[in-house]
């Protein structure tokens, strides 16, 4: 399955999904509450240390760093103009710290692990009719639908072009939605035929 995950065996990779998410939420909260550039700088350093600890290969973190840097420069310039230098620095540190931390969690956690973690977490909801094992299935079904709809989008765009309407939003969106709804009906029938509960 396509994802942003970078396989590895480091301590960060081996930390359970729940712990990583908890750490991320605590960190994100702290980033919002703290207003001092010094403390924000320390947190930012901690996150960067996490990257080193996870031994993320250079090509991956360089790409992230470049995107973050571009965003940070833009945001810094804008905030400096609107709010002044000190505030701009605080905003940029918040931004870089939070984004880098979230990205680190995503990089070090395979989708399948998150899926099984979510399945574990929703187990208590069983008595409300939620079936934990359906989480993984939802992921698979949606990814399959993305592939099908991408094909349909291509066909519809071609048809719009053949009608001389390649610039018309309606000529693309309406047939695309009609075929999307029909595909949903077919999928619904296929699921019902295979024993999913129907009304």
């Amino acid at each position: 399955m396509i994802s942003a995950h970078e396989p590895g065996t480091s301590m960060v990779h081996r930390t359970p999904v729940g712990a990583k998410l908890l750490a991320l939420f605590v960190l994100a909260g702290a980033v919002f509450v703290l207003g001092s550039p010094l403390w924000l700088g320390v947190l930012c350093g901690v996150v960067l240390f996490g990257y080193a600890l996870a031994r993320i290969p250079a090509r991956r973190w360089l790409r992230t760093a470049r995107a973050l840097l571009m965003l940070a420069v833009f945001v810094f310039a804008l905030q400096w103009w609107l709010l002044g230098g000190q505030a701009a620095l605080v905003v940029c540190l918040r931004l870089v710290t939070a984004l880098a931390a979230a990205n680190l969690v995503t990089l070090t956690t395979p989708v399948d692990d998150v899926v099984s973690a979510v399945e574990r977490w929703v187990r208590p909801l069983r008595r409300f009719g939620v079936r934990p094992e359906s989480v993984g299935l939802l992921v698979g079904l949606t990814m399959q639908a993305v592939a099908t709809l991408s094909g349909i989008a291509g066909e519809v765009r071609e048809a719009a072009k053949a009608r001389g309407a390649e610039r018309s939003v309606t000529a693309f969106a309406v047939p695309f939605l009609v075929r999307t709804l029909r595909h949903a009906d077919e999928l619904g029938e296929a699921l019902a035929a295979r024993g999913a509960p129907d009304r």
Binding site: R131, S134, L137, E186, L187, L191
Partner: peptide
């Protein structure tokens, strides 16, 4: 579409 049957409590 060829899909496995899910067990969820939503109508298909």
């Amino acid at each position: 579409p060829d899909v496995p049957a899910p067990r969820v409590s939503l109508p298909a």
